[in-house]
Simulated assay, not measured.
Amino acid sequence: MIKKVLLFTFLLTLTAASITLDSSIELALKNDKRILLQEAQLQSSRSLIKESKGIYDISFVSEISYLDSTTPSTSAFVSNNTLGEKTTSYKFGFEGYLPTGTSYNFFDFGLEKSETDLGTSAMSPVWNSDLSFRVTQNLLKDFGVKVNDIKILIAKGNSEISKIEFERVVSLVILDTETKYWNTVYTKKNLELALSSLKLAEDIVKKNRIEVEVGTLPKVALLQAESEVAFRKVEHIRAENLYQNSIDVLKLSIGIPIEQNITIDSNISKKVLKKIDPNEIEAIAINNRPEVKQESIKVANSKQLVEYYSNQLLPDLDIEGLISYSGLGGSRNSNYSSAILGSPRIASKYDNGYSDSISSLESLE
């Protein structure tokens, strides 16, 4: 909103002041749709670089699940001919991937609570916990920093292509604005010349009319002067139309409304141009042409893709290291059929519920 107000204020000041070449270029760079579109594409290509680098970010993974089931049963160890079971699981951990082709899972912790009314289960609920550390290294496919970084390198190359294209569009907009501005200056100068020519022709008519009246000139000289005035009027109208058309074209180019009244600063200052050695023109053109730079980047990207897909044809061969710890805990099952199965054989350390599982895990037993 603030930008719109500032732009509107700037446009209002243009009615009282002439538009210069610099202000025309500034407005064109702000309002040209090609620049806005290319700028959005450049931002999109840069965001793809961040997205490609995200493969190496550490991720926190968590999962919670709950299952409650009731199943008809004819077992002698269930009551009311139904078997009820409940399972609650908690899992979380950290995982990631390294540029060398190494994937890892650290502090992969899991905790599961199982409850049942089956008479053969000595403990209910049962708490099972586990903690693991896993490292996997690719040995053939996806092995090495170069292969895993290819997508990032290609994203950077595409971003550079978008940057070069953005610079090319900016250069074209500046060149187009300068061309239309100087064309407007030319038509303005041409209009001033047409007006001065018309005034001169009208002065000649006045002079010839006086001389014809006093008899020093024939009437044909007056007719010739009047025809010249008519011709100059037509030329003045043409010059005025060309000037108005060039102003309208400039307005559209720099994003000013057609109904906005503007004047052009027609002061022309001589530019000091840099001298270039004719023998260096070809090298300068090749090194600075945007399409040459873009194509060279595309060729480099294509070579990297060939290397990547060649690597993807290799078989999967991995080496893995795993360290895992488990814990167990629970409470005595109130539905245990001790009359049939006898007293449950449960160690005392497994009769304190959840704390047993965590304690055994902490002691790494």
Rank of each mutant, 00 (worst) to 15 (best):
L191D: 06
E280A: 11
Y56Q: 05
E226V: 14
S348H: 04
T71I: 11
V299E: 08
T71R: 10
N128G: 00
R345P: 00
S360A: 09
L195Y: 05
S337L: 13
P290L: 07
P344R: 01
H236N: 12
F143Q: 09
I2E: 13
I161M: 12
I276T: 05
N105R: 10
N190P: 06
T70C: 01
N311H: 02
I19E: 09
I262M: 05
T71W: 01
T9Y: 00
K156M: 12
I49Y: 11
I237F: 09
I262K: 07
K113L: 06
K206A: 13
K50P: 01
A155E: 05
G255A: 03
S197G: 02
Q304T: 03
I174P: 01
T70N: 11
E259H: 11
Y66W: 04
R232P: 03
V214Y: 05
L21G: 04
V147P: 00
K30F: 10
N190A: 13
N158P: 07
Y243A: 11
F92H: 10
S24Q: 10
A285E: 11
N80Q: 12
N301M: 09
I281G: 04
I297L: 15
L273M: 06
E280C: 01
A300C: 01
A194W: 05
I237M: 08
S129T: 11
G110C: 06
E228W: 02
T263K: 08
E291F: 06
L252N: 14
G157V: 03
Y56P: 09
V173P: 02
I19V: 14
S103F: 04
V214C: 00
H236V: 07
I204H: 07
P125Y: 10
V126K: 10
D117T: 09
D265Q: 02
K33I: 09
S310K: 15
E295H: 09
S114A: 10
K53Y: 07
S310L: 14
N352Y: 10
D22L: 12
S79L: 03
E211R: 15
S171R: 15
L14F: 04
I204T: 14
S79D: 10
F107K: 12
Q224G: 06
G93D: 05
K53H: 06
N261P: 07
Y336L: 08
L131G: 06
R238H: 06
F94T: 03
D316W: 01
I174D: 11
P257V: 05
Q260R: 12
R232C: 05
S65C: 04
I25F: 04
I254V: 15
L21W: 03
E95T: 09
E165R: 12
Y243F: 15
I340L: 07
G119T: 08
L131N: 02
M1W: 01
S69R: 13
D277C: 04
D108R: 08
A230Y: 15
K199P: 01
A300E: 10
L14P: 01
G327A: 03
I204P: 00
E259C: 00
D130T: 03
Y90A: 12
S23C: 00
E365M: 09
P125E: 08
Y325R: 06
N80E: 14
D203C: 05
D265V: 08
R345K: 07
L36E: 13
L12Y: 06
V299L: 15
N158R: 11
V234G: 03
F133L: 14
V220N: 10
D108T: 02
